[in-house]
Design a protein around this nucleic acid. Structure first.
Lengths: 411, 411
DNA sequence: AGACGTTAAATCTCGGCGTGAAGTAAGCAG
DNA sequence: CTGCTTACTTCACGCCGAGATTTAACGTCT
């Protein structure tokens, strides 16, 4: 059933390198000693592997800590400037390209407005020029970039071949993208490794690494914006499903046959509590026109005690709670994180009611093992999460520098 | 984020053994040659490892196939009688204990009726006596049994220690079991390795190994009986969630605030389409009394064109389709298998309508990648699926014979 | 200052692994 | 019986991690 590939003795080394690199990355500077006890590797192997990583320049010594009378421990850490990462957020209104170092501190950013036209070719050109901008701004040569992570709207079908990023196909209903060969188009502009995923999913990744999901292995990051989405993490890994489209929470039904939804079905969660739907139901605004202002107005009205607004938000909390209860029943997560701009805006007011509704609607046992919290990440989380895609690959491979260097040089 | 443990060079051998054993198990008799090309191992290693497995008695030679003029290929297969497995189904009305050989052919079975009293202590004693019965009936010594897989109703919290099966705790609302230390109680009667899981989940396992889920890596087995449950398989592995209770599909909402459900919430799927609910809505029968007959009567009435019955079944198909659409959106499976006794009974009539409703309610892209089929397993699938639990462990470990032999001998 | 104890890290030996090449076994055709 | 083809086995090699041993780097005590 689960055919794990064969392994040679060299894979052991890769695995050791990966384990040590990962541990150093997430648990700060550590001595070889601590590294050994933490990872279970013998002191000899730690010495051996760290020596290799040191000569590769992937890690570096950084000070020492005295030990009770003996030789001091030398601390090791991942060398942050040895390699770089690019995270890209293709949003509804702009394309944002950010360059990070290995420690994911931001080095340079380039925003480009994306008004009416969402022509794929145009977006790709904007990415290419943004890439140029951030690299020259930070003075980082392209061959130092481990890879480019991109968060796009819509469903992303991952490639499977030797260059999977270049085979990525995007189905973005909001952009009118239907089976756009996004990876292939990008590949014509850059030889760097490409990692494309849904923007909500990269946001979820950021939340798991640096936000409210930190420390949990099973979580659902619920994203509440114009639409509603979710990113499911199972056992520390994003749940993708057969074609990477798992987690489309917004079109789960809360009232079968109820309000019509833009997806063509009726009674979807999004048709009730998506920001677009809420604003429309509140003041009849035409969809798409300044949702953020409309939602803020709805929130102010509710805080002023206006009955219609209060009722609308109460209903939203009830439905969100019930639908979160579905997530609890189906995924049994340790934690549910509510994010997205609408979630951040309404969260402080709605969270207690949502939690209470979830308790009423979910099975008692899994609900008791779940906490529901608000996201605590800023607006740049999508690019950050996108950058974790190549970073994950880097750590998994034990710090393998991609062999695109030659390709970059050749271009 | 994903700390994979360290590995020593000996783990390689375990991995190779597991790969070969697995491949032989699922892809029938094969020659060493074919085994090598299929698994990617070199011919030398295949010879080496198969030699080891042969002397361990785990595999055996079985005939040969001529090759075009050259030395004939010697076929290898897993030795079916070398070890045995026990699968147990704790149902609403009986406890069934079945002994299998390694090829999962049934050797002996013992049924014991379980009427009103579902006292855990009594159930454990019935298991112990059933175990004795099947072992003596088949003449298999206890130390030949690799382990005991048990499907129980309710939520199962897996243990984590050195003897995880013995730390299993069961929360079975239908049986009135609240945090029953089921594993510990069983451990007092047998030293054999224990593997406990929810009965619906073991049924799902059986479906994936031998039923309609065969060949898919991402699937949802939807179980439709008195209640409604599901078993989610992601990438060939059962999706457990944080506390093994993932997949509680029956209490997802189809109409928030709708019909009251026995779980305490309202509008759950189970409150509309569970067999108990259907029968009650059809003829007002008190819950629990001969649901199967009631459901069959409902089906006959619908086939006779009785409007109430037709409407009820049409609504059930619509709701099931909508809720299956939720599963498609959230889990993005390749296949959805509808099983359970009620599913088998109503399936032939409802399947077209369910599929059509699912298409209307799910997102187009993931829906187009999913097929919805009926289960094709018999009523003994729960024990079969339960037996796959120790079998999976056996294959994963590369054919490790548990060291409980000493313990068995000592008892 | 120098010897000593203590702890950290490097080095070395050892058994074990899978690969790939070379060698052997087992059938068939002429 | 010879030669050919194919299946399998054996073996040298490079590499791995564990564990023991050695070296390094400090504080402290005399």
């Amino acid at each position: 059933m689960t055919p794990r590939g064969k392994q040679t003795v060299r894979d052991l080394r890769r695995s050791s390198r990966s384990t040590l690199l990962r541990h150093l990355y997430f648990h700060g500077p550590l001595s070889r000693q601590e590294l050994g006890t933490a990872t279970g590797l013998s002191a000899g192997s730690v010495s051996n592997v760290t020596g290799e990583l040191l000569t590769d320049g992937l890690i570096e010594e950084c000070g020492s800590v005295e030990s009770d009378g003996g030789r001091p421990r030398i601390l090791l850490r991942v060398a942050p400037g040895q390699a770089h990462l690019v995270g890209i957020d293709i949003g509804e209104t702009q394309v944002r390209v950010t360059l990070f170092d290995l420690a994911l501190t931001e080095l340079a950013s380039a925003d480009q407005p994306l008004l009416a036209a969402h022509d794929p070719e145009r977006v790709v050109r904007m990415i290419a020029s943004g890439l140029d901008q951030v690299l020259t701004a930070a003075g980082v040569p392209a061959e130092n970039v481990l890879g480019i992570g991109i968060g796009v709207p819509g469903i992303v079908e991952q490639g499977t071949g030797a260059d999977p990023g270049a085979d990525t196909v995007v189905y973005g209903q909001t952009f009118g993208w239907d089976a756009v060969p996004f990876g292939r188009m990008l590949r014509e502009h850059t030889p760097l490794p490409l990692y494309v995923d849904n923007g909500a999913k990269t946001l979820g990744q950021a939340e798991m690494w640096f936000g409210a999901g930190r420390g949990s292995r099973h979580a659902v990051v619920a994203l509440f914006g114009s639409g509603v989405g979710a990113c499911v993490i199972a056992d520390g890994v994003r749940f993708r499903g057969a074609t990477s489209s798992a987690g489309e929470w917004g079109h789960t039904k809360v009232h079968v046959g109820g309000r019509p939804c833009r997806c063509g079905s009726r009674g979807c969660l999004e048709a009730y509590v998506g920001a677009e739907a809420l604003v429309e139901r509140w003041d009849g605004t035409v969809p798409g026109t300044s949702e953020k202002a409309g939602l803020a107005a709805l929130l102010r009205a509710a805080e002023d005690g206006q009955p219609g607004a209060v009722a609308l938000l109460d209903e939203a909390a009830e439905l969100l709670g019930a639908s979160i209860a579905d997530l609890v029943n189906l995924f049994n997560p340790e934690r549910i994180v509510i994010g997205g701009w609408a979630g951040l805006l309404l969260g402080p007011r709605l969270l207690p009611a949502i939690g209470e509704a979830a308790t009423r609607h979910a099975l008692a046992y899994p609900r008791s093992r779940t906490t529901i919290t608000l996201s605590d990440l800023g607006p740049d989380a999508v690019t950050l999460g996108a950058a974790t895609l190549p970073l994950t690959h880097f750590l998994d491979s034990g710090g393998e520098m991609p062999d695109h260097l030659a390709a970059v040089a050749a271009v």
